[in-house]
Structure formats: structure tokens, C-alpha cells
Design a binder for these strands. Sequence first.
DNA 1: AGTTATTTTTAGATTGGGCTAAATTTATTG
DNA 2: CAATAAATTTAGCCCAATCTAAAAATAACT
Lengths: 220, 220
Amino acid sequence: MHLSNTEENYLKAIYKIAERKNKSASTNTIAKYIGTAPASVTDMLKRLAGKQMINYERYKGVTLTTIGGREATQLIRRHRLWEVFLASRLRFSWEAVHDIAEELEHIKSEELVNRLDAYLDYPKFDPHGDPIPNAQGKFTLRNQMSLSAALPGNKVVLLGVREHETSFLEYLNELNIGLGTEFTIKAFNNFDKSMNILVDHNKETLLSEKVCQILLVKKI
Amino acid sequence: MHLSNTEENYLKAIYKIAERKNKSASTNTIAKYIGTAPASVTDMLKRLAGKQMINYERYKGVTLTTIGGREATQLIRRHRLWEVFLASRLRFSWEAVHDIAEELEHIKSEELVNRLDAYLDYPKFDPHGDPIPNAQGKFTLRNQMSLSAALPGNKVVLLGVREHETSFLEYLNELNIGLGTEFTIKAFNNFDKSMNILVDHNKETLLSEKVCQILLVKKI
DNA sequence: AGTTATTTTTAGATTGGGCTAAATTTATTG
DNA sequence: CAATAAATTTAGCCCAATCTAAAAATAACT
């Protein structure tokens, strides 16, 4: 089944929304995610339903079919493998890789993505710590938790971020925080749920509740 | 100036046609090259003229403007750099790289192509021996001639091919001929302009006139 | 040079992907 | 539970890129 870039983007959006909300995706949510008018989404949903990619019933949300889910997973695989290539081989920073990978992910060649995977030594995680599905679509799981769930005194290492926006990643750069950075939780401030952390044994930094929720860590 | 993939492909076609014929490109020629109806070409030519990419006058052919030529050259640069990446890093065969590079060449990021160039060590020629323009659009020239122009007794090395079609390249593979292959011209057959050549000091092979014209060699 | 053939352009239609405005269905709430 | 609000869909439109068929301009030939 041939899919256009746009159709693929809708499938990816539905996948990510469903993953987050753990259920079906609504027209409005998709519209916001993609950045189009809800009416355009309705049109596209009909088309994707016709291609057996989604389960669509008027006024209910949509879910991916088995093949729709497979397409979405492969798209995520391609996206994240290209991100690894851009960061590890071409030395792009982690905030620059997303936009370019958005284009590269649509290159249609099974052979290409599998050779790229091998060339990169079958990476399991991308530069933001997101898991890369293998050729069979299987994701690697690992123990990780939101920083919000850590307690004062805990020493943790950063495994991933739930937000890929450039400005946010640049903010982390300024704080000297990147994947693999280790830090200690000095204090939890109950009134605004912010945290004081110690990076590199010398800089004490305040992280807002929002940032704590975005950071994915593991206790060490 | 933003160009769609389609517009870029038209510019590339005009560039290649003009390069070959050494003059302006006609509507019909472009239509044949792109694989569309002449009427579609006319529409597109008007649009490209509006974007100052070509010089267009009804019923005359078209030529690229300075900026149109620069766009075409950059597209060729991207195409050939990706071909090098696919062949040298991902180990694709020389007949497989063209189609994938046709997609990759449209990824829009100046930074990407320049980093790729550096990563590949600023290659000067692609896997078919075609020159790769540098960031300033300058092509590397070298001494080469069509095999047709070589004489019996000459020993030559293959530098490039003027035809990228898969079936032709696979034919050369079967003959154990690739870039860098050295061979000696044993005989020139005047009646059909074919040549007998000796590859690897053991296989004597007959090459048709057409093939001789396509192969680009240098005397050694 | 005049007629025919070829090339190119115009006219009008189609498809994918998008929009706004209006209508309809579902959800919320006094 | 009726009225209002929010979400969704329909209707009708637009643009890019394509097509076919017909008209117009250029080229070729007797």
C-alpha cells in the first residue's frame, strides 16, 4: 500500500496521540498536533480509513489498524535512526536533528533503513533517549521514571526527554544537562513542585515542575 | 526562494538537457525527460519563469537563469553526495544508488549537505564517475575521453559512465567492469564500430559501439 | 510560397491536500 | 432535561500538478 508523506504524518500523529493518551485520537487533537484545520483532518481520516489504516466512525475518535500501526512504527524507526545518524556521524546537536529527520523519515526504501541500522550498529535509543523499534517493530524497554518521581538524596542519570522542542533542548544545554548527565536531588519544594539539583558537583540548579516531568531518569 | 520537489526536478531536467545539447531545452524534450505531457511542462515553465528560475518565451525553448542554474547545480551536488554515501558507507551497489538519491536530493538543509560532504571527505566524483560540484558549485574537470576515441593497443582505465540505467550497469557488472577497471583495446571493428577488449588479462570481451560511447576512460 | 506536419500552448477537467463557514452531532451544565 | 457549548462533519472553495483534446504557432516539404 502506497502512502503519501502527508498520510504517513497523520498515522504518526495518531500513533503518538494514542500512545500518550492511551486511547483513540480525536479529530481536534490530531488537528492541533498536525497544525491543520479540523475539517482537513476529517477528510484525511476518511481517506486513511479507505486504505484500511485506521478504524474510523463518524464523531467517535480513530484508532490505528494493525497495518496502520505497523506503518507508524516503521516511520518512527526511520525517524529515530536518521536522528542517530545526524547526531553521531554528522555531529549535529540533539536540538537540530529532529527537523531534518522529519524529512528523511519519508524516504521510501526498506533496504535503506535496514542498511542504515546496520551501519549505525543497531542503536537502541535515539539522541533524545527515545527507543528505536527494530526491523520487526519491537521497542526496547528499560527502567526509567520521570524525575518528578525521584526523591531528595537520590542520585540519577538522564536517560531521555519527553519534549523535543529546540528551545527546551537549548535550555538544557545551558544547564549542562544532556543524555548521560548524572545529578543529585538536593531538595523538593512542595509548594511549586520544583526541585533543586546538583550537576557536576558544583552547580546547584532549580528545575520547575514542568521540566521535572519531562526528564526521564534512572537511579544510580 | 522556496522550490517544491517537482520544480527542482524540472530545473534539473533543463540543466541536463541543456548540458547535453549545449543549448536551450524544448518543451517536448523536457516532457520526455520528466515523463509528463507537454501541456504540463508548459504550465510548469510559466511558474518557473515567474520565480525567475528560467528565461521563457512562448514557443522558444528555455534556458536557466543564474539563480536557476545555481539551484540545479546544488541539486546535482546533493544527489551525487548521497550516492557516495549510499555506495561507500552503506555498501549499496552502483546500480542501486540512483533511485534512492533521487529522493534524498530533495532534503532541504544547506547544513546537512555540507556536513555530509565533510563526513565523506569532500569526494570529487560519484559512484558513476560523475563530478560532484563543491559548495560553490564548481565541478572538478579531468582528462577523460569516450572509449570510442581510444585506439587498438591503448591501455585505459574506466573513469565514468554516461548512462546510469540499472540494466546497463548490471551488464557491466557481469563483464567484471567497474570504475577503476583497467583494460587493453585489442581490436577495433570498423564495420560496426565495436571493440574487442581484454579485461583482467584473461577475458576477451566484445563491446558494441553504443557501449563504447558510454564508457569514459583515460589512457594509462 | 502554400500546404502539411510538428511543436507548443490554451482550455477545461481531475486529484490530493488544504481552507472557511455553516450545519450537525455529542457533551455539558444550570 | 432543555439549553448552551464544544466537537465534528459537510459544503463549497483554492492551489499545485497532472491529464486530454483542441487551437495556434513554428517548421518542413513539395
